[in-house]
Computed example of a mutant assay.
Amino acid sequence: MTTSSPSRTPAAPARPPLLTGALTLRFVSMVGASASLFLLLSAVPLYARESGAGGDTAGLATGALMLATALGELGAPRLVARFGYRAALAAGLFLLGAPALVLTASGTMAWIVAVCFVRGLGFALTLVAGGALTASLIPAERRGEGLALVGVVGGVPNLVALPLGVWLGEHVGYGAVSVAAGALALVAIASVPGLPDRELIDGESVGVLAGLRTGALVRPGAVFAATAVAAGIVVTFVPLAVPSSMGAVATAALFVQPAVSTAGRWWAGRLGDRHGAARLVLPGLLLSAAGVLLTALIRTPVAVVGGVALFGAGFGIAQNATLTLMYARVSTASYGTVSALWNLAYDGGMGVGAVGFGMLADRTGYSSAFVLTAALMLLAVVPAVRDRSTRCP
């Protein structure tokens, strides 16, 4: 008498690896660019004020950086298509790093703005070329988790460099901070030749202008832009808004905000892969607005730190959810366009926030300006609600 072997449940297919050699190498240039940017992001407005600029004009430095980044992102996809990922990424790292070496050669506002503008063009190339390359290295079925990992790696330099730049500027000098920021970007160029290039591009490409006419890309981009406006305000004006006696609170806030944002991106990525990223867009927006509203209590240390933490959580969720949605809705050939549009929302929003908030706060005071910002962010609820009912492919 023979017995049949017990039936076996088919094993679930193995998930493709997430952390490959190519992605690990890409992290080198990512960390270099991010650290270079954030080391000076909050330090430059303080350097400008120390050199004689007022609080409102000091915001022009961040505004110039983000304006140039936004303009560069419009043309970067064409450069990537013509020269490939590697050449565009290397050029971006050079333009980001070299001008930082001479930032403190002059203390005039015109010079500071010019240096920030050139760095912004370089940063645009690193974002578009590097972002598209990074997305191409992540398996589609693990996109949310992969982008969350990318957010963690990119968030660590933000976490460390943002408050460190302010502290070093005050204790060591802004010249040393500028040289360090420049060196970080320039050294990272050495990692670029080992990265893959054009062979990752597949499918029909959607241009930037066509992307701006595509609702499936514009809606999440608009929501993210609203949170990015607040991000530009937080990193530029929290150190200026809090009383001078609360300098330690400003440094702590600049540490807490990117730390919580990084955690938010990781949580949103893992949850979004399971239940859909579209469901997370609205909660991210509402948490961000609530955090900005709480930060309006600028004379209360707990409120300032708690407000930027709440904002950071919402901002991290919005970052991952919107980017995951946008990549899922195009082919790999259009990853450069998605990277450009998403980063255009990021950097354009930060630039508008930095410049607009400075002019607003000069007339209303910082507390009222934070309240008005939170109210204006709620205008993005409409596209957020529409995308909440749209399932990610």
Rank of each mutant, 00 (worst) to 15 (best):
T2I: 13
T2C: 13
T3L: 14
S7N: 12
T9F: 02
A12Q: 10
R15Q: 13
P16D: 10
P17E: 15
A22G: 02
T24Q: 11
F27N: 07
M30H: 06
G32D: 03
L39F: 00
S42G: 07
Y47C: 09
S51F: 15
D56G: 10
M66I: 08
A70L: 13
G75F: 10
P77K: 04
P77T: 12
L79F: 12
L79P: 01
A81I: 10
A87M: 12
A90C: 09
L103E: 11
T104I: 09
W111N: 05
V115S: 10
L121P: 03
L121C: 07
G122W: 09
G122I: 10
A124V: 07
L125V: 05
G130H: 06
G130L: 08
T134N: 12
A135G: 03
S136V: 04
P139C: 00
R143N: 07
G144K: 00
V153N: 02
A161F: 01
P163E: 11
V166A: 01
E170Y: 14
V172T: 14
G173A: 08
Y174P: 14
V187N: 05
P196I: 14
L200T: 11
G207V: 06
G211S: 06
P220H: 03
A222N: 00
A225Y: 04
A225L: 15
A226M: 13
V229R: 03
T236K: 15
T251E: 11
V256L: 06
V260R: 01
S261F: 08
S261E: 10
T262S: 07
T262D: 03
G264E: 06
G264I: 05
R274Y: 01
A277F: 13
L286W: 05
S288Q: 01
S288K: 00
G291V: 11
T295N: 01
L297M: 08
I298A: 10
I298L: 13
R299F: 05
P301L: 04
V304I: 11
A309I: 09
G312K: 07
G312W: 05
G314A: 09
N320F: 13
A321E: 04
L323N: 00
A333D: 05
Y335I: 02
G336M: 03
V338Y: 04
S339A: 10
Y346M: 02
M350P: 05
M350R: 03
G358Q: 12
A361M: 13
Y366V: 04
S367V: 02
S367A: 14
A369R: 06
F370A: 00
A374R: 06
L379M: 09
V385G: 00
S389I: 04
T390M: 15
P393Q: 00
